[in-house]
Amino acid sequence: MRSRVSAVRCVDVNTISNAGILAIGDNRDGAKLNSRVLAVQRSLATFGNDEFRLEFYSLFARPLPIAPPPPGPPALFFSACAPIEIGSVDVTGISAASHVRIGCGGPETAETRIVNIRNRIPGIRPQVEVDNK
């Protein structure tokens, strides 16, 4: 087990959202992040349709790519008496299955799938004020 002493004087993070992680120190089990987002923005709402199931969209059925095994011989890591010293870390946002780690950890796994549907009808003002960009 690799282990290192992590020391951070100051950490300033504004927002962590949507399966984001901020980890300071070692982690033996790693992190498994997952965020599946579906955003719909319409000029007129269609409440009668069942369109919010993720399995209806091919993006979520697409198989994940499998990374090939690392080439070369196996590696052994030695981290004894190798501390990590950081003065300050300033991150405004950690979002959408992202993570910030200070220390040893792994394996790190993440996944993000986003479908953003925008249906804008010219000449019709939405009943709820939205920003159609």
Binding site: L64, I84, R101, G103, E108, E111
Partner: peptide, 18 residues
């Protein structure tokens, strides 16, 4: 840091991001 991104100060055995 967004959309399956990572900021790592340290070590890891493997990392898989989509």
């Amino acid at each position: 840091v967004s959309s399956s991104s990572s900021l790592l100060i340290g070590d890891t055995q493997s990392m898989t991001l989509y």
